[in-house]
């Protein structure tokens, strides 16, 4: 099979009505050599993302880094303002009074880490995204309700309009449809 792309085709979508069936189908699709697979479900299914070969994400790393930035930044802000920008003698305490800076340092860690978890998750998911080809599939609105979908993308080297359709139908999908770009 060639890597030639079908014009105007994003991929091929198969619809399932049972979580076990979609996980089994996803595994078989992956075993069949397809790599550019997307799966859709109304609620998170751990086995499903594993089945399409997706095991780790970088959300935790982002959160760790931003948490550290928040902590260091928060402490530096307090130290700089209290000792350099606006030195103030409060009850004879040292200008950099570390113990009383801890609560705000901690809050800054949490604030930046939480913001990065939220923004980072959306950014890595490329959201907000007003348009996506999969919404063209009739019945895809049930992906947020009670249906499960597998989409083999057209840029997968093994993809061919007829071959992939036959393969997905062989997996016992309820419905197989083209995804227009």
């Amino acid at each position: 099979m060639t890597t030639q792309e079908e014009p105007g085709l994003y991929g091929m979508m198969a619809e399932f009505d049972d979580p076990n069936a979609v996980v089994a189908a996803a595994r078989r699709t992956y075993e069949a050599g397809y790599r550019k697979i997307n799966a859709y479900s109304p609620y998170p299914i751990e086995e499903l993302s594993e089945a399409i070969g997706y095991r780790r994400n970088y959300v935790s790393l982002t959160v760790l880094l931003f948490g550290l930035v928040g902590g260091l930044g928060g402490f530096a802000l307090q130290a700089w303002t209290s000792a350099i920008a606006y030195p103030l003698n409060v009850g004879g305490r040292p200008l950099i009074s570390t113990p009383s800076f801890i609560p705000i340092t901690f809050e800054c860690v949490v604030l930046l880490a939480a913001l990065s978890a939220f923004v980072g998750m959306l950014a890595m998911n490329r959201l907000p995204q007003p348009y996506h080809p999969v919404f063209n599939v009739p019945g895809f609105n049930r992906a947020s309700q009670d249906r499960f979908f597998i989409c083999v993308k057209a840029d997968d080297p093994n993809f061919s309009a007829t071959g992939t359709r036959a393969f997905l139908e062989g997996l016992g999908a309820k419905e197989v449809s083209d995804v227009e770009k």
Binding site: S41, P44, S49, N57, M121, L127, P128, A143
Partner: peptide, 20 residues
């Protein structure tokens, strides 16, 4: 915001949710 229940999205979502 264009959420479509993508398995990879759910994966990151769950991580972020747990971290939060």
């Amino acid at each position: 915001m264009g959420w479509r229940g993508d398995a990879k999205h759910w994966h990151r979502y769950e991580t972020a949710y747990l971290l939060l």
